[in-house]
Structure formats: structure tokens, C-alpha cells
Simulated assay, not measured.
Amino acid sequence: METISANKSHHGTQYVCSHPSIATKTEMLFSVFVPHGDGPFPVLWYLSGLTCSHANVTEKGEYRKACAEHGIIFVAPDTSPRGESVANGETYSMGQGASFYIDATQAPWKEHFQMKSYVENELPELVAREFLMADTSRQGITGHSMGGHGALMIGLRNPGKFRSISAFAPITSPMNCPWGEAALSSYLGGDQAAWAEYDSCELIKKGATPDALLIDQGLADEFLSEQLKPNLLEEACKDTNINLRLRRHEGYDHSYYFISTFLTDHIEWHSKRLLAQS
């Protein structure tokens, strides 16, 4: 691992790092905020949305004060592999910056687009090895839009690894929206049974049972009705008696103005669940 930058903030340190990834076969960037002290600190993962990288939340998220107060390490991976040798799509919702956090099985994507494995396994192992104050037995996960889909999906698939799950304006059912249908068909082929393994609503219907979910959604979000469809997640949770707290906010859009307003709430929500595990 190489440290690209390290800046003091709220008595802790904000790092930006890079490393050669085995999963993606590319150099990957990620950011880590570490509170002051020796720890051990639980880890909260943040997965970003379409067209974004680690930098968006790192620069706009306004999370460091809350993480410092609650004693939480905050890790933000990139949204996809990148580079001249990496396949790319013709639109912003496919290819670089748009991995949907899945392990692709179809050419030309499968060589590098192995982001589920990267987020579930490789990067947590690296963080645990390089940041000895990180307690990866206590991990939570959150994210925005495509990253909200990733947080829900990866959290639901790994209940023993990610103990708290939340999201901002998530794509709740990629099988049932234009962004998701295009990505899943390209990355995974035409078998919809394979798609269902990456769809949070389908995972819940098949028996995923998180203790609780926290979702924030802006009602002025331009993607709300066509792409995000929080009602589908609401219905899936109601049918299976999952404790879903879905907060709808008048006037808020899809931007980091929205995310930064409520990210402190999510950090506090995760801290209660992660710190209770110690």
C-alpha cells in the first residue's frame, strides 16, 4: 500500500491510499479517516454512486467530525477499476465509475470488474493489515445511489461480516430499473437468476434478514421514480417483517447537499450497533 496523502482533521487523520488489487488487476485508490487514538475502532464503509470515486464523499461528505466523536474509521473505496486497459461503456451508467459492485462474468468486463470480491474481502483484509487500530470484526456499510445498492446488497449477502446497513437514495432493485437492467445484462449476461443475486429486494425475498435498515431519500430526487424505487424495498421489508426506517425528505435532491445533511445521523445510527458489539 502507498499513502498518497495524509491530512490532520478533527484530531484524526484523513488518508488517501493506493494499492495493486488482486481482484481487479489494477491499481485502486481509496480513502480512510482514522480517529485520534489507539483504538480498536469499528469500520464504516461508504460506497459511492455512478460517475463518482473515493474523492466525492471524502471532499463533500462532512463525516469526519462525527466519526471522530464516535470513534469510527471511515473507508471509501473507488467505484470501479480504472485505466487504459480497463473496458469502458458508452454511457456514464456502464463501465468505469459504474461497477454496480458486482463480480462480472461476461467479456470484456470479467477481467477487471470484480468489485464484490474487492469490497467484501480484499480491501477489508488490506485495511486490517495496514491500519492496526481497525477492528474489522465490527463493520458497517452505507452508500449512495449505485453505492446504496452496493451497500444493501453486500450487507445483505454478508450478515456475519457487516453488522449494520444503511443507504442514501439507493437503487433498491437493479433488476427493475433502466440503469440496473443495462448493467446486469452486460456484466452478467441474460440469466436473470444471476441478476437476482445482486438485487436487494430479491435477496430479502429469499431470506436475508438484517436486524434493521436505515434509508434516507430526497423527494426532489430526479431519479426517484424511474431508477431508485424505494417503494419496492419498502414492500419487500414489509412482507418479511424487516425493520426498515425509510425517511423521505421534502425538497432534497440526489446531490451531496442531501447526503452531507444526513450523513452524521447515519454515523450515529451505525455507531450504536457497532459499539454495542464490543
Rank of each mutant, 00 (worst) to 15 (best):
Y198T: 10
I154H: 07
E125D: 14
S93V: 02
L156E: 10
P35E: 06
T172C: 15
A276M: 09
P178K: 06
V86T: 04
V86R: 03
P230G: 01
M28R: 01
R245Y: 11
L126T: 12
C177S: 12
R157L: 15
A193Y: 01
E250L: 06
L126C: 00
C177V: 00
F258S: 01
S173R: 09
W195R: 04
T24E: 14
H112Q: 12
M153V: 15
Q96W: 00
P159R: 14
A183E: 00
P42D: 07
S53F: 06
M94T: 09
E90K: 06
E111H: 04
A76Q: 13
L228A: 09
N158T: 08
L156A: 07
I242W: 03
G140M: 06
E122V: 08
G190K: 04
A68R: 08
N231S: 14
W45K: 10
A98Q: 05
D265N: 15
S21K: 10
L232K: 15
K60Y: 14
W45G: 05
P81F: 10
T264E: 15
H249L: 14
F33K: 02
A107F: 11
Y252F: 13
N231M: 00
A23W: 01
Y187M: 07
A98E: 01
Y118A: 08
G189W: 13
D211C: 08
E111M: 02
H249Y: 15
T91D: 09
E234S: 13
P35I: 04
S200R: 07
F41K: 07
Q139Y: 09
M153E: 13
P20Q: 11
G143N: 06
Y15F: 13
P42A: 12
L246P: 11
G83H: 09
G160F: 04
C17A: 10
W45P: 02
S145T: 13
D103G: 04
F168C: 05
A66T: 13
S85V: 05
Q192Y: 00
D103W: 10
Y187S: 08
R248T: 05
F113E: 06
V127F: 02
T26M: 12
N243A: 10
C52W: 00
H10E: 13
M115H: 03
V75N: 03
G61N: 10
P20G: 01
L246D: 12
E59Y: 09
K161I: 12
V86L: 00
S53V: 04
H144T: 07
H266C: 05
P178S: 12
E122T: 04
G155K: 02
N176Q: 09
I4V: 14
T26G: 01
T3K: 11
N7C: 04
S185P: 00
G89L: 11
D265P: 01
M146S: 12
H149F: 03
G37Q: 13
Y198P: 06
Y118S: 02
E27T: 13
L44I: 14
H54D: 03
S271N: 10
Q217H: 11
K238N: 12
Y46H: 15
G12N: 08
T209R: 08
G37V: 12
L263H: 05
A220K: 14
R129C: 14
V34K: 12
